[in-house]
């Protein structure tokens, strides 16, 4: 993945995309800790992950 990765939409930090990343995978911003969702891989698109809802869990 040599593409330019867009910055964290929350804080502008550089976000590292793992080599084996998948679409719809969650990654945490290393600076602000916000959860991001990888919306696309080529090119990499990042969006804030949806807010945790009350029924989320195991």
């Amino acid at each position: 993945m040599t593409n330019q990765t867009p910055p964290c939409p929350e804080c502008d930090a550089e976000v590292e995309i793992p080599a084996d990343a998948m679409e719809n995978e969650l990654v945490a911003c290393p600076d602000c800790g916000v959860e991001l969702e990888i919306m696309s891989l080529d090119p990499v698109g990042l969006e804030l992950a949806p807010e945790i809802e009350e029924d989320w869990g195991e």
Binding site: D20, M22, E23, N24, E25, L26, E37, A49, P50, W56
Partner: peptide, 13 residues
């Protein structure tokens, strides 16, 4: 069937 991909889902795939 997933909401999104977390560490567990990657391991499952």
């Amino acid at each position: 069937l997933v909401t999104h991909i977390r560490a567990e889902e990657k391991l499952i795939i």
